[in-house]
Amino acid sequence: MTEKETLTYYLIKRLRAIRKERNISQEQLSELAGVESRYINKLENGKLNPTLNTLEKIMLALDISYRELFELSSHETDIESLLVALAELSPSQRKVAINAFIELLSLEK
């Protein structure tokens, strides 16, 4: 999985979790966001990648900020420190760290 695919996987998983936490169906979300329900279904099943424009529509429909999307709440300093440390790694070290993260995500399934 590439870095882009990893980010897309994370975003989709996070959006689905927020939608479910708020007891919003895919159909309701599609109406709120102004996109087709098939789009939400394909998005959540990993068959589509959201554009930034569509991502923003979905975030507005769910009434969430980027901070919430990336789960930067009480753990924000830990996450920010981790992201800074990740950015300071060499490309090969970063790839190893990202692959480890991907492995952890796959264990969560």
Rank of each mutant, 00 (worst) to 15 (best):
E3N: 06
T6D: 01
Y9N: 07
K42L: 03
L86C: 04
R16A: 11
D78E: 15
A100G: 15
N23M: 11
T51P: 02
K42S: 00
A33Q: 03
R19S: 00
I12E: 10
F101N: 07
N99K: 13
T51R: 02
L43M: 05
L55T: 12
E31A: 12
E27H: 05
Q93F: 06
L7F: 11
R19A: 00
T2C: 04
T51H: 04
R16T: 06
I40C: 02
K47W: 06
I64K: 02
F70W: 09
L82R: 08
E88N: 08
N23E: 10
L60D: 10
L82Y: 14
R19T: 07
L86F: 13
E76T: 05
N53L: 10
L105T: 10
N23D: 09
M1H: 07
A87I: 12
R38A: 08
L72F: 15
E3V: 12
P91K: 05
L104S: 14
S92M: 08
E108P: 09
V84E: 13
R14H: 01
E21C: 00
Y66W: 10
Y10P: 00
N45Y: 08
G34T: 00
K4N: 07
K47D: 13
N49F: 04
A87M: 13
I40S: 02
K95C: 04
L60G: 02
T77H: 06
I79F: 02
L52F: 02
N41L: 00
S74R: 12
N99G: 11
E36C: 07
E103T: 15
L48A: 00
I58N: 00
A33V: 00
S73W: 08
L69R: 01
L52S: 08
E3I: 10
I58R: 03
T77V: 12
I12L: 15
H75P: 12
N49R: 11
R94D: 00
L60S: 04
A33L: 03
K95L: 06
S90A: 09
L72S: 08
I12G: 07
E103F: 11
E80D: 05
N99I: 13
I24E: 07
E56I: 01
S90C: 02
K57S: 14
T6K: 05
S30Y: 11
R38P: 05
N41S: 14
I79E: 02
K95G: 14
R94K: 14
D78F: 12
L60P: 03
Q28R: 09
S106H: 15
N53T: 15
Y66F: 09
K95S: 14
E5I: 09
M59W: 05
H75E: 15
Q28A: 02
L107M: 09
V96M: 10
L55K: 04
I58F: 06
L89A: 02
N23Y: 07
K57L: 08
S74C: 14
L72T: 12
N49W: 01
E44A: 07
G34Y: 08
L15A: 07
L60Q: 04
S81H: 07
L43S: 03
L32T: 04
S25T: 12
S81G: 10
I18Q: 03
K20R: 10
K13S: 15
N23F: 10
A85M: 08
A61L: 03
T77K: 15
K109D: 08
A97W: 04
L52R: 00
Y9K: 14
S106Y: 07
F70S: 01
K13L: 13
E103K: 15
Y10I: 09
E44P: 09
L82Q: 14
